[in-house]
Every structure is written in C-alpha cells, then in structure tokens.
Computed example of a mutant assay.
Amino acid sequence: MRTPHVVVVMGVAGTGKTTIGPLLAARLGVPYAEGDDFHPPANIAKMSAGTPLDDDDRWPWLDAIGAWADGRAGLGGVVSCSALKRSYRDRLRAAAPGVVFVHLAGDRSLIEDRMAHRRGHFMPTALLDSQFATLEPLQADEAGVVVDVSGGPEAIAGRAVTALAALPDPPA
C-alpha cells in the first residue's frame, strides 16, 4: 500500500479488536487508537451495567472516531470500533471517506470463550447476544475485508495485512 489506509477494525465484542488493532498498526507503521477511549463515561457506565447502547448513545462516539480517522487521511491509522451496523459504517465513511474496514469474524462459541476469560473489560458476556443481533456484516459495496479470528493474534494480524494489501490504494 503506497498511501496508508485508515483502517477501522470492527466486529462484535470479544473478537480481538483491542488486541489485533495495535498489532495491525505496528505492521502497517501507523498509529493506533482504541475505540473504547472515544466513549463518553455515560456509555461505559451503561455497558458496565449490562445495558446495550442505543443509536443515540452511539452517534457522538462514532462522530469522535470519524473525526480521528479524518485527521489521519493520507497518513494512515488504525482504530478499533465495533461498527456493527451499516448505518454506523456509513457515518464513519461520511466523516472520513477513505476508511476501510477489517471485520474480525468468527465462531460465536470461540468469541464467548475469549470474552469469558478476559480481565478488566467493561463489556459483559451477557451483551454478546445483542451484539450478534445488531451485526450487519460488510456488504460487497463496502471497502473492507473479513478476517477469521481463529488462531493466535499474530496469525490474525498477518491475515489482515495480507487482505488489506489486496485493496486498492485510497484516493490521494
């Protein structure tokens, strides 16, 4: 990739966005931003209590991520963001037209097991069903790739780099 992409690492909770994002950014030589850091405290409190966010909760969060991505246009960057619905990805693309998505996807039982064993994260396993119910996978007309989350983090990041390399360069 001659011109670095701004990559949004997306997927349901537990797919490894926070683990794969920094690995991918390091391999691409661009900065990483943790999408959860863009959430206002009220969103974190709501999710910590086991209550799914609604669209009104998500719009300011998506706008903040979109602004970060737009600021990295032409420079490249990687940011994690669940981006579960097409409308969320459309909002990110409206803010940062050149973004591409890496959809981390995998077997629900694997993802649930990983969530059950992680420590220090506010998202409870109980919200996984709502995440899968909300998920609208990438469509053929969306710039992005789907990457399987089986295996270790290095293998997943490697698959993501390989898949991204096959995408056309973003507009200058």
Rank of each mutant, 00 (worst) to 15 (best):
residue 1 M to C: 03
residue 4 P to C: 03
residue 4 P to V: 03
residue 4 P to H: 04
residue 5 H to F: 09
residue 6 V to C: 04
residue 7 V to T: 06
residue 7 V to P: 03
residue 8 V to T: 05
residue 9 V to D: 04
residue 9 V to E: 04
residue 10 M to R: 02
residue 11 G to T: 04
residue 11 G to C: 07
residue 17 K to P: 09
residue 18 T to K: 08
residue 20 I to T: 09
residue 22 P to H: 11
residue 23 L to E: 14
residue 23 L to Q: 14
residue 24 L to M: 10
residue 25 A to Y: 10
residue 25 A to M: 11
residue 26 A to V: 04
residue 27 R to L: 07
residue 28 L to N: 01
residue 29 G to A: 08
residue 32 Y to L: 13
residue 33 A to N: 00
residue 33 A to M: 10
residue 33 A to G: 02
residue 34 E to D: 15
residue 34 E to N: 13
residue 35 G to K: 04
residue 36 D to T: 10
residue 37 D to I: 00
residue 41 P to V: 12
residue 41 P to F: 11
residue 44 I to M: 09
residue 45 A to I: 08
residue 46 K to G: 06
residue 48 S to I: 04
residue 49 A to D: 10
residue 50 G to R: 09
residue 50 G to L: 12
residue 51 T to L: 15
residue 52 P to E: 04
residue 54 D to S: 13
residue 55 D to A: 09
residue 55 D to V: 09
residue 55 D to P: 05
residue 56 D to L: 12
residue 56 D to V: 12
residue 56 D to R: 13
residue 58 R to A: 09
residue 58 R to S: 07
residue 60 P to K: 12
residue 62 L to K: 11
residue 63 D to E: 15
residue 64 A to M: 05
residue 65 I to A: 14
residue 65 I to K: 07
residue 65 I to R: 07
residue 66 G to H: 10
residue 67 A to T: 15
residue 68 W to I: 09
residue 71 G to Q: 11
residue 73 A to Y: 00
residue 74 G to T: 08
residue 75 L to G: 11
residue 75 L to P: 00
residue 78 V to R: 09
residue 79 V to K: 05
residue 81 C to H: 10
residue 81 C to P: 08
residue 82 S to R: 06
residue 82 S to C: 08
residue 83 A to I: 12
residue 84 L to E: 07
residue 84 L to D: 06
residue 86 R to N: 02
residue 87 S to Q: 14
residue 87 S to I: 15
residue 87 S to K: 14
residue 88 Y to S: 04
residue 88 Y to A: 05
residue 90 D to T: 15
residue 91 R to G: 02
residue 92 L to S: 04
residue 92 L to N: 05
residue 92 L to M: 07
residue 93 R to V: 14
residue 93 R to H: 09
residue 95 A to M: 11
residue 96 A to E: 06
residue 99 V to K: 02
residue 99 V to G: 01
residue 101 F to E: 00
residue 102 V to Y: 03
residue 104 L to G: 03
residue 105 A to F: 05
residue 105 A to C: 01
residue 105 A to D: 15
residue 105 A to Q: 12
residue 106 G to Y: 05
residue 106 G to P: 00
residue 107 D to E: 15
residue 108 R to K: 13
residue 108 R to L: 02
residue 109 S to V: 13
residue 109 S to A: 15
residue 109 S to N: 08
residue 111 I to A: 08
residue 116 A to T: 13
residue 117 H to S: 13
residue 119 R to H: 15
residue 120 G to C: 06
residue 120 G to D: 06
residue 122 F to C: 08
residue 123 M to F: 14
residue 123 M to A: 08
residue 125 T to D: 00
residue 125 T to A: 14
residue 126 A to Y: 00
residue 129 D to K: 07
residue 130 S to I: 05
residue 131 Q to W: 03
residue 134 T to W: 04
residue 134 T to R: 05
residue 138 L to Y: 01
residue 139 Q to D: 12
residue 139 Q to V: 12
residue 140 A to D: 15
residue 141 D to W: 05
residue 143 A to C: 07
residue 145 V to F: 00
residue 147 V to N: 02
residue 148 D to K: 01
residue 149 V to N: 03
residue 149 V to T: 15
residue 150 S to T: 14
residue 151 G to E: 05
residue 154 E to M: 01
residue 155 A to R: 13
residue 157 A to H: 11
residue 157 A to K: 11
residue 158 G to T: 11
residue 160 A to I: 08
residue 163 A to V: 06
residue 164 L to I: 06
residue 165 A to E: 14
residue 167 L to R: 02
residue 168 P to V: 03
residue 169 D to E: 15
residue 169 D to S: 14
residue 171 P to N: 03
residue 172 A to K: 07
